[in-house]
Nucleic acid binder design. Structure first.
Lengths: 178, 178
DNA sequence: GTCTATATGCTGATAGAC
DNA sequence: GTCTATCAGCATATAGAC
């Protein structure tokens, strides 16, 4: 396992964060370079094209997913609570990569669409392994998805409304589980 | 009440649909003109700038929201069920305008952020008027938001998974209401 | 490995014919 | 009201210095 250059990681992280905060259109190579505090040429050395940035984000996302799926399966609180709770971390590496994938999928980038379908199916499978009722499991998953949507929404309302509700929302999840 | 030119409406609808299906970056004036089957000059006659298109979408969204808030308040099934059920229509006018606003908010367009915060607060208020438990109300709203997120997701998994679950998801909503 | 130019193509917007 | 040119600016990508 090689030690990837620091500038490469900084650029990749800046790319994902920009997708989240400013959207695909504003996520130019110039903006990535500025946010990562390196030059445009430096970015294009590590990622020879813009699509190479997306592909690197995809690979990072897949690694974070595989790690998360293990954690989720082993979580003492159970997969449902783990899933919903981590839908509102707003800063974990999985979270950053996931929102970047959402943005890329929304711009119809097929590899992102495929990766998201795969992990959505895997997440729902794990919830269903804990929750007998098929539709209760789907409802739990949707609560998590709703939290994701709001956690990546600009503006203060979402944060102000849901940030301090997480523990009580987990109790609602418990009610659905039975 | 004037009769707006047909081309104007076609362009506005094409703009919103493109935002949903292809994302902000691909939603160029050229693409809008092609989808609406008019010329670029024709689009720019009705909307002198690209932001004018966004502003028209915003106005349309507000009108649809005000209509929906009345319908929601009067819905015989109650606001919660109405809200969750209409989160998966995938083709209503509110739906089209709402997803366009989500995309514009995700690209940090402040008027879209403000409009979404306003309507989210209004929707949650109505759900809370029906559901005593504050957090049950939030959970219900999040189920609807999750459905929205999945209904505007490209790819088949979301549609295949949730499309035929709506009735049973509404039963989960009923469970949370009590 | 990182930088500063520079080339090429696309996007938003204008002018003016019909 | 709608069209066809056309321009100016920006984004991606390349070349080559250090």
């Amino acid at each position: 396992m090689s030690r990837p250059p620091k500038a490469r990681n900084k650029a990749l992280l800046a790319y994902c964060e920009l997708l989240r905060s400013d959207g695909e259109r504003a996520t130019t190579i110039d903006a990535v370079a500025a946010r990562a505090d390196i030059s445009k040429g430096g970015v294009l050395y590590h990622f020879p094209s813009k699509e190479a940035l997306a592909e690197a984000a995809l690979e990072w996302f897949r690694e974070e997913c595989e790690h998360d799926l293990v954690t989720m399966a082993e979580a003492p609180e159970g997969p449902s609570r783990h899933y919903v709770r981590t839908s509102w971390t707003g800063g974990s590496e999985l979270d950053t990569a996931y929102v970047a994938m959402l943005r890329l999928a929304q711009s119809s980038w097929q590899p992102a669409i495929d990766a998201l379908e795969w992990v959505h199916a895997a997440w729902l499978d794990q919830i269903r392994s804990e929750v007998d009722d098929k539709f209760a499991a789907e409802a739990i998953m949707l609560i998590g998805e709703g939290l994701y949507a709001h956690s990546s929404m600009p503006g203060e309302w979402s944060r102000g409304t849901f940030a301090r509700s997480i523990d009580q929302l987990l109790e609602q999840v418990d009610r659905l589980k039975d």
